[in-house]
Design a binder for these strands. Structure first.
Lengths: 336, 336
DNA sequence: GTTTTTTCCGCAACCGGTTGCAATTAAATT
DNA sequence: AATTTAATTGCAACCGGTTGCGGAAAAAAC
């Protein structure tokens, strides 16, 4: 059926090793030979079988791209960047959807069966046990959007969520809000916990300001909307730092339903700065996560680990910044 | 390093063939043997290497999932459904991002190097040449969201875009609009062409109604918004059938900027019914594409082709229906 | 209890490549 | 021109499995 090494070899009248070498660069072959082989290969329409090759080289160039987040629009951007970035380096993403998976061992086994060279865990809500399960089996892993720790046992790249919480707090304070709240994502997610922590920490230095917090059930429109609908039953804070952008949009929709004007009656600041947040009919003021850098750095780190599997785990954190749009009132000191 | 067949074999004191058979169901092994082998395997933490296996079985269970659409939120839903559906059947998606690829041969070669069992082309904007390139190399391919043809040369599953155009036209007519327009996606996309065709065709039977059309540069918020901003320079039609939902949202945002009320001043109907269209602050009236069915049918078809590669190409089309939300005025005959 | 069938297991070849090693050939030195 | 050194090439073993085939053992039939 398919044309193999042997076919090319016999056509070119050389050994199979010669053909093999002609297709691996850096191998010891004369240019003459290489030309001859490539000619025969072209005539036959041959291209080497990566999987067979991987058997001896122990490199499949397959990278498991695992996530459980298929309902947050920012992840489409994430997948776009990851696939492109991996492709550019000759790696192939094997996409794994863990939305319904609870057993880390199961995913590990599956990815081992396909001999992936490494695994990128792209999620801020997946329990750390997943990343660790890969590491325990000596599979290079980077946890993108994972939790920063001063003693990481797995490579993490993303942002400092605690600092993000502080940034949000500082921003709200600077805008002169006197009563603020954190409307977080799922309480179990480390990202939620950290953002809350930083938020409270920063506000603790401003005792005059009222603070409260609550959680939505997921990083999703529905959950954000539901939570704000619930909150609106009683009195509202002046401004909310929401778990992420999609949550924020749900919150905005609830406020609209309740006849609250944003930012006149209530201020909202999100986190992520996904594409949609810039849409004019949303115009969400938010804390931007530099996802391009995060992702290209994740891939870079992955290729580095392929060279050096026992690399000491590090955390790569990128700074966030707030991007001003239309859901927070202007700073009192610099009126627009 | 990794534990192999041989390790298990020697531990269990049996031949490698025995181990192999113990791990392939339907093989000729006694229960006793199977138990013994599995016990040894469990102790060693062995699981078979799919890629090595694929060398002889000629089945990798890898499916190329190719798309060029990483900016339309509906595709996140699409990827979610595809990955889950494939996983459920023991298949693994190798995700390929063709956003920047123009040469079909290149993609074919790459996927052949990984010996994918089949390819799912999920796109309504990718030139048909891509699907055909796979078919020409005898790789089973299904083109999801592809163009229906009465003589398909590649399996297609999706909707009848011409009929969708007709549905839109009928809906607008029924709502009593006297001047309507199609604001399509990229003119080169077959889906755009077909939707326009059906739209015009249906309206031709109502000579009293004014019809016009134009195209946005992409199925995207920005493109839809830009086009509507342009159109709003002159006078507008009473209602627009937009290329798809994300385009529609761009259009809505432009109208809002121009101070036009929807549906009071202008009516909008989209196509797709993506999750976001149901968000209360968008509430887009749209023609729903049954993507769950489309995708599960695509996967079904793919597994059928794995059994029977020379299956005669078919087109599987699913009916669309309009879902009423808030961007079209009510039907005159049944006021709400 | 013997003969015929079946079931089960191991041998060895093979899937499509890669690579250490030794042999051959070409190039460089003297 | 003879010798040393470097560049190429082929042989054969191996990567981690699968599978056709023949024979031994177990089960069924007589």
């Amino acid at each position: 059926m398919a044309v193999t090494l042997k076919d090319v070899a016999s056509r070119a009248g050389v050994s199979t090793s010669a053909v093999s070498r002609a297709f691996t660069d850096g191998a010891s072959v004369s240019v003459k030979m290489r030309r001859k082989v490539h000619k025969a290969a072209a005539e036959l329409g041959y291209s080497p079988n990566f999987l067979a090759r991987s058997l001896t080289t122990r490199r499949t160039k397959l990278i498991g791209l695992v996530s459980n987040n298929f309902h947050n629009p920012i992840f489409l951007e994430v997948f776009d960047l990851f696939t492109r970035s991996l492709q550019d380096r000759g790696l192939r993403p094997l996409l794994v959807n863990l939305s319904t998976e609870t057993d880390p061992e199961h995913s590990v086994q599956m990815l081992r069966q396909y001999s992936v060279d490494g695994v990128i865990v792209a999620s801020s809500t997946l329990p750390p046990a997943f990343s660790k399960a890969f590491r325990n089996k000596k599979i290079p892993v980077v946890n993108t959007f994972g939790r920063y720790s001063s003693t990481p046992d797995v490579h993490v790249v993303g942002i400092d969520n605690i600092e993000a919480g502080r940034i949000a707090a500082r921003e709200l304070i600077a805008r002169g809000y006197r009563s603020v709240a954190f409307l977080g994502g799922p309480e179990a997610a480390t990202s939620t916990q950290d953002r809350l922590k930083g938020f409270l920490e920063q506000l603790a230095t401003h005792p005059g300001i009222q603070v409260r917090h609550s959680f939505a059930e997921a990083y999703s429109f529905r959950a954000g909307r539901a939570e704000m609908l619930r909150l609106a039953e009683t009195d509202l804070a002046q401004a909310y730092f929401c778990g992420d952008d999609v949550l924020s949009i749900g919150v905005l929709s609830a406020l609209q339903d309740r006849g609250k004007q944003v930012p006149r009656d209530v201020g909202i600041i999100g986190l992520n700065d996904m594409e949609m947040s810039a849409w004019e009919n949303i115009a969400l003021t938010t804390i931007a996560q530099p996802i391009r850098q995060i992702i290209s750095s994740s891939v870079e780190l992955m290729v580095a680990m392929l060279e050096e599997p026992d690399r000491y785990p590090e955390a790569r954190l990128f700074p966030c910044h707030v991007v001003e749009r239309g859901t927070l009132r202007p700073r009192p000191d610099c009126p627009t």
